[in-house]
Design a protein around this nucleic acid. Structure first.
Length: 569
RNA sequence: CGGGGCGUAGCGUAGCUUGGUAGCGCGCUUGGUUCGGGACCAAGAGGUCGUGGGUUCAAAUCCCACCGCCCCGACCA
């Protein structure tokens, strides 16, 4: 490609819309432009990089034995009714109507479609396992699109769906995808960590997310350096540090705490009760009934875990009026001592605790000398707390760490939820009908692209890995007079590199050297070859890897040196 | 949806408090000089000041409503 013929609108200044480095660079380097919130146009360079990521994904999926198909983005609502997700996923569904006012769904994911396909086509165990994938635009009615391609209303996703005869088979399919994902992200030049994840509305059995560590990530990852345990904060566990039982507990005693409304307030004089010796009483409305949740004062409730403990996701924190109606007290003075007519869920950490302080269920009063076992009618004990950095790893006991990360991929073991809903069954060896055991596997392709930029940049711009760079080599003649020796050599190298299969761009613009250098560094081509009169006088050109040192190379060796430099990166 | 911020030329912005001519930088056009790290000089083109309403002799500026964008929270690849 000749730069003068291309469309590469680089920007010296950052548009106000961008907040994080990758978004700024995607705009400044002329890779994308915004149409409106959450919708982006891929310009030529951006599209080339996107295609590179897609191709890596495709090659690794094929290598793992998955079969590429393409399903419609437009889907009939009936199949969403059939899976039950017309209601449960309603929040993310973008809908459209045709001329007959019939409703359509712009596909946010394709479990329903692919399972319908399989239900009609596969009927024998001999045909399994199968894994179908596609690379396609997905639509989601995001509550808040953000950070350019990171979270958009429309994005390119690779989604794969595996169908197996047995649980063990499904496990193997899952492992294949897990391994393929690790290869894909590695080939994209990304450092990722695979973490245990919550299955959320997908309704699966277990899952892993592939995370790119980044301060700007929207996820919190909890990990352990010594045993390699890593999990999404939603899913993470830590050792239940038992609350010390203090012997010879007196009977509960009510005491006045005027104006005390928080755990924090009680830790101050004159009360001086540490948060670890307080019981936090939360009220949730679960399927229209109030449920009481007890946490230790220094712990936070993890709603993902609560979903698991309750067996339902339809709950919300109760409003202050609802709480008062149920307990005759306001938040800040709540307590569950002596309550009998409520479901009470408590976090494991509180098991056996005594000498605790909690609300008295009377505004302005608390109770001390509370003993969980003696004074509370706990219906269910579960792990409900949000893990925190510094707590002991549940596996090895070492302190856990926490960091932010970008989720670029997610593998799920789904089970038979969809195969049962769509009757995607097969006959096994004994002629018995069985639902296929499914897995589903997603990669945010556009997000992965941005994650690469987020991870690979310096003060001058993007530093593309060779594997996803829009062009790998930028030829920079410092003078473009067509009859000059510099441009003649540039043209010759341009042809030779193209012949050798190198994706090369020739900066034939009549611009000053500094201007061209800045542009090539902003865009981040892995190798730049500078061709100028000074070095040419010595029979040399200048090979400059992005972010590396400039090395003079002999003209006649230039092509080989470029190829060597590319394969070394 | 709740909270915060912002809409002025393609991009970045000043002006708004205290109403009266819309300014600067980048980019763009033309000419010239430059030519190894985002050159310089000169002359230009380009603006319904987000939209609608109100106040006023007069509104980018004051008031109201709406729309859009960005950030923080709930959602996810």
């Amino acid at each position: 490609m000749r730069w003068s013929q291309a469309f590469i609108p680089t920007l010296k200044e950052t548009p106000a819309e961008a907040e994080i480095i990758s978004h700024k660079l995607l705009l400044r380097a002329g890779l994308i432009r915004k149409l409106t919130g959450g919708l982006y146009i891929f310009l030529p360079l951006g599209l080339r990089a996107l295609h590179k990521v897609e191709q890596i994904v495709r090659e690794e999926m094929d290598r793992a034995g998955a079969l590429e198909i393409l399903m419609p983005a437009l889907q009939p609502p009936e199949i969403w009714q059939q899976s039950g997700r017309y209601q449960t996923a309603e929040g993310v569904l973008l809908k459209a109507r045709d001329r007959a006012k019939r409703e359509w769904i712009l596909g946010p994911t394709h479990e329903e479609v692919v399972t319908t396909l399989v239900a009609g086509e596969l009927s024998s165990y001999r045909q399994l396992p199968k894994n179908f994938y596609q690379i396609q635009t997905k639509f989601r009615d995001e509550i808040r699109p953000r950070f350019g391609l990171m979270r958009a209303k429309e994005f390119v996703m690779k989604d794969a769906y595996s169908f197996d005869v047995t649980d063990e088979g499904a496990q193997i399919s899952y492992k294949k995808m897990y391994d393929a994902y690790a290869r894909i992200f590695e080939r994209c030049g990304l450092k990722t960590i695979a973490v245990e994840a919550d299955t959320g509305v997908m309704g699966g059995k277990f899952s892993h997310e592939f995370m790119v560590p980044a301060e700007t990530g929207e996820n919190e990852v909890v990990y352990c350096d010594s045993c390699h345990y890593a999990a999404n904060l939603e899913k993470a566990t830590s050792q239940a540090t038992k609350t010390d039982a203090v012997a010879a507990s007196a009977m509960p005693e009510k005491f006045a705490t005027p104006g005390v409304a928080t755990i924090e307030d009680l830790t101050k004089p004159p009360f001086d009760t540490p948060a670890t010796r307080q019981i936090k009483t939360l009220v949730y409305v679960v399927e229209n009934k109030p449920v009481i949740i007890l946490m230790r004062g220094d712990h936070q409730l993890n709603e993902a875990k609560l979903t698991g403990a309750l067996g339902t996701g339809t709950f919300r924190p109760a409003e202050a009026e609802e709480i008062f109606a149920a307990l005759k007290a306001h938040p800040g003075s709540l307590g569950a001592a002596g309550l009998k007519d409520f479901q009470i869920h408590a976090d494991e950490t509180l098991r056996g605790a005594s000498e605790m302080t909690t609300g008295a269920n009377e505004d302005g009063f608390h109770l001390r000398h509370v003993d969980i076992a003696r004074d509370f009618a706990v219906n269910k004990w579960s792990d409900l707390r949000l893990a925190a950095a510094g707590e002991a790893c549940a596996r090895c006991g070492q302190p856990l760490k926490m960091r932010r990360a970008i989720e670029v991929g997610h593998v799920f073991k789904l089970g038979t939820k969809y195969s049962e809903a769509f009757n995607a069954c097969f006959l096994d060896e004994s002629g018995k009908k069985q639902p296929a055991i499914m897995g589903c596997y997603g990669i945010g392709v556009t997000r992965t692209l941005q994650a690469v930029v987020e991870q690979c940049n310096d003060k001058d711009g993007i530093v593309w890995p060779v594997s996803v760079a829009p062009y790998t080599v930028c030829l920079t003649p410092l003078s473009v007079a067509p009859d000059g020796a510099v441009m003649k050599l540039a043209e010759r190298l341009y042809s030779e590199l193209k012949e050798r299969g190198v994706e090369v761009i020739l900066d034939d613009r009549d611009e000053r050297p500094g201007f061209k250098f800045k542009d090539s560094e902003l865009i981040g081509f892995p190798i730049r070859v500078g061709i100028g009169e000074k070095s040419l006088a010595k029979g040399e050109v200048e090979l400059k890897p992005r972010g590396g040192a400039l090395t003079p190379v002999k003209v006649e060796e230039a092509v080989e040196k470029v190829l060597a430099a590319l394969s070394a990166r």
